[in-house]
Computed example of a mutant assay.
Amino acid sequence: MENTATENGYWKDAKGNLVAPENIRESDRLADSIVRELYADAKRINEELVKFKQHALDDIRTHLALVVEKYGIKLRGKKGNRVLYSFDGAIKITINIQDRIKFGEELVAAEVLINECMAEWTHDANPNLRTIVEKAFQADSEGKISVYRVLDLLRLEIDDERWRKAMTAIKDSIRVIDSKEYVRVYERDDSGEYKALPLNIAVA
Rank of each mutant, 00 (worst) to 15 (best):
G72R: 13
V35G: 00
I73H: 04
K102G: 05
I158N: 11
N200Y: 08
S33R: 14
K102I: 11
D13W: 02
E187Q: 03
D13C: 02
D152Y: 13
I170Q: 09
K78Q: 04
H123F: 13
N17I: 01
V50K: 10
H123E: 15
A90H: 03
E116D: 15
V108Y: 13
E26A: 10
A136I: 08
Y148G: 02
D190Y: 00
A110K: 10
K144D: 07
A40Q: 07
L49Q: 01
W163L: 14
I24C: 04
E26T: 13
D88G: 07
Q98H: 01
K74H: 09
M167Q: 14
L18H: 07
V50M: 05
K135Y: 06
D172S: 12
F137W: 09
R82M: 13
A202D: 14
A40H: 06
N17S: 06
Y39R: 09
S27Y: 07
I73W: 01
Y10P: 02
L57D: 04
N3G: 03
A136P: 08
D32W: 08
F103K: 09
C117F: 15
E111P: 06
K102D: 10
D58Q: 09
L49F: 06
I201L: 09
A14R: 08
K12P: 09
I45T: 05
K70S: 11
V68F: 13
K53C: 00
Y10T: 05
I114A: 12
E2W: 00
L197M: 10
I73K: 08
Y182F: 15
I95Q: 10
L199S: 04
L84A: 12
N3H: 07
E22K: 13
T62Q: 05
N17G: 06
D152R: 15
N23Q: 12
V176M: 04
D189V: 00
K70W: 03
E7I: 06
R100T: 11
D140H: 05
D58R: 11
R184K: 15
S173A: 15
G9Q: 09
K43Q: 01
D13I: 04
A65P: 01
N81M: 04
